[in-house]
Design a protein around this nucleic acid. Structure first.
Lengths: 200, 200, 200, 200
DNA sequence: AATGAATGAGATTTCATTCAT
DNA sequence: CATGAATGAAATCTCATTCAT
């Protein structure tokens, strides 16, 4: 089961990815040097090229791997909930839990991947679309079951929800706006979205 | 009256800024070469340095100048509206009008400036904070006048609203999610936010 | 008589040369920008090119003009002295007087022209050779008249004398070695050279 | 013993320094391009930056390293001589031997470093001062032991001597004044300085 | 004659990537 | 497999010089 994680090849690849998360988060993809990642991962520069085709490929791999874990987390958390409203709340809770668990990862996702389509040629961000469709399912289910208003476009709502949690998280990471706790933010978001979506 | 705009020095500075908006939007700040901007502006590389200290300074100037115009636009649009709900709707309309008017500018704002704190040392994005406070004022006023629920934190709401419109706009610009029109999105957002915020 | 100096064309040319002396002395030829000279001369950059072919040409003109004045000074000072020893002393006094009168000029001569053969293609420093021959004449005359030892090579002596006064002046300008006054240095040099050269 | 010299890192650093001496001597510091040095050293441009912070740093390192060797040479040559006059003569001989051994190095020292204070910010030329103090010691010792006149300022004499040998060497390197051999020059200098300094 | 904005060639320096050890 | 020294392409920026006004 854990075979993948324990073999030394995968172990080093992961070490490099973790280092990259940290370094990309701190400096941004362009300002982060391959050598910075190498040092953070305690390997030589050249070693990185044994595991990744190039710097772009490292970012893509990082994203794919981490996104897969995140998607798993959401699926686990959401699978045994029936009530769409509760599901939405659980989604929000899970999102902020992930953010709190790994600020650096959150940073890479939010800032660096925003522009992935610019600097990563031919990379189509399927995992991100999968993530959005997690939200979409919640909404659609809620509409079908009569909980959520059906005069809204689920695709718009999906993005609205993502934008909301993403931006709150971003500002919280930046520490720019310390006028609220993450806890308070979560509750506010739940209230607003629930009231905005449900059928009275 | 239009003296500033018509003097040739300002005229060329603006030409460079417009070119930079276009080029940065297309390629991203890092992948955009100074020479790309120069070509787009129909000037020599060196000319850019007569108007801007360096590439970073060009981005900062671009942002400051454009953001100032945007802020003016919002202030104009919002000044003679009394009803907070209507104000919120007007804010949303204005936001998307601006986005539609200048996709490239929107792109630079959304994507490139997200990471400004990373690559622009010591640049504190006051204009962005001013922009957020435009939203904050609407919310606060609505709370004070009894239109909006007061059990919400206006700072959270402000960011929620920004995140929402920003992300919808972003996806629309990317053309990633063509399953809705901007018009439909606007209406959806208005509904959700209004229902989420108002006192019943 | 003063026609040359008073016509406006020559006046501006001189103003540029004086500015160049000051600027080259302070920053060195390479680090001095044409614009620095222009600003110091209170003219536009382009104006310099109306009077000089290019930056190198400015340096050459500066040198030629100043060196001519200096040579005149030495000739005046030395013409009516018969005694070679006294002539040598007068040479030394004149040299240091010039240095004191115009530190900047001295600096340009000493530092910048040392390498003129490197960066000024095809410039043969005739004026400098003329200057050395002023010293040579003194020595030769002294030898012929039986004052100075004839077992020395006048060409060596000439350079020895130049090297001596030049280096003392240089160190004094740099302010590096303030352990003596220029006056004391002059007297020391006179003593040593006289004793080193005369027939007992 | 020679561990330092034989390790490959030091070996390459030295190769670059030797190349720089040659190239700076020929073209002058400013006209010499980093690529010229790289080619002369048979390395890539970038390699130079693995060993030196920048072009200025290369010049400083070159100077420091070479000057240290030179100082050692002088100390070796002078240590077992008691007679100050003989010491002075040995100093002069050693100086010209060094010049003959490495014309290029001499050139860099004489011409390029003359202006080091201009283009090397904050570089205080301690090694040069050490060199001057070698001469100073000879003079002072001679004064204390009654060989040299004590009515002279040793600091003036020190610079006079340096200026003399330096200028003679410079002219010889330039080949400007081929009217004497270096041998003849050496003897002339010894005569003049000795007669100028000793107590009769 | 004078200006100074504009030019663009060219220099320094960085850094992703390679490859001999 | 791992290393890290070396590479060299490429980018930013400077500044002598030109030329339209």
């Amino acid at each position: 089961m854990n075979k993948k994680k324990s073999d030394p090849k995968t172990e080093k690849k992961n070490r490099i990815i973790e280092a990259a998360v940290k370094v990309f988060a701190k400096k941004g993809f362009y300002l982060a040097k391959v050598n910075d990642v190498a040092k953070a991962a305690n390997v030589a520069d050249g070693t990185i090229y044994l595991y990744f085709k190039n710097k772009d490929d490292l970012l893509i791999n990082l994203f794919e791997q981490k996104m897969e874990l995140i998607l798993q987390r959401f699926r686990e958390q959401l699978q045994d909930i029936a009530d769409p409203v509760e599901k939405l709340h659980r989604f929000i809770d899970t999102y902020f839990t992930l953010i709190e668990e790994d600020k650096d990862l959150a940073d890479v996702f939010q800032v660096e991947l925003r522009q992935s389509d610019k600097f990563l040629k031919d990379y189509h961000n399927q995992k991100f679309l999968d993530f959005l469709s997690v939200i979409h399912s919640i909404i659609q289910e809620g509409m079908e079951n009569g909980f959520f208003r059906t005069d809204l476009n689920a695709d718009v709502v999906k993005i609205l929800i993502f934008g909301t949690v993403d931006e709150i998280a971003r500002q919280w990471i930046l520490g720019a706006d310390a006028k609220y706790s993450l806890e308070e933010a979560k509750e506010n978001i739940k209230h607003i979205l629930t009231n905005g979506l449900i059928v009275f």
